[in-house]
Amino acid sequence: MNAGDPMVYAGAVGLILIGLFTVITRRNLIKIIIGLTLLDGGVNLLLVAVGYIQGRTAPIITPAHPDTARMVDPIPQALVLTAIVIGLGVTALGLGLAIRVYGHYNTLDTRKIRGLKW
């Protein structure tokens, strides 16, 4: 990480947009869930990037680095740790629903599933 590196922001926003595009335009349910995981990853990266501070170390105190004034913001990291685990729960539940839908309609295409098309 060099001085003034906003490219990480560009990556995070790009990932959010790709995820949203996938969710909006794809018609396969599993593809939509893949889009949700991409969106999730982009938001997580954005949060951690906002908490990053130039030239500081990870928020773990060791005998060699006891100076807490030289550490990055730990709160976004704690938040994102939670978000990643919840993201897995959401993905698993979504995939379970998709498998059930496939068992019922024998397709994952949202156009052919009654009540899901727009």
Binding site: L93, I99, Y102, G103
Partner: peptide
């Protein structure tokens, strides 16, 4: 709360997947 959410998700997957789908 987070562990509870994960538990609910796990419970939901369990309830959805115990009925065997005919094709899969």
């Amino acid at each position: 709360g987070e562990v509870t959410v994960l538990f609910s998700a796990s419970l939901g997957v369990g309830m959805l997947m115990t009925w065997r789908s005919p094709g899969g």
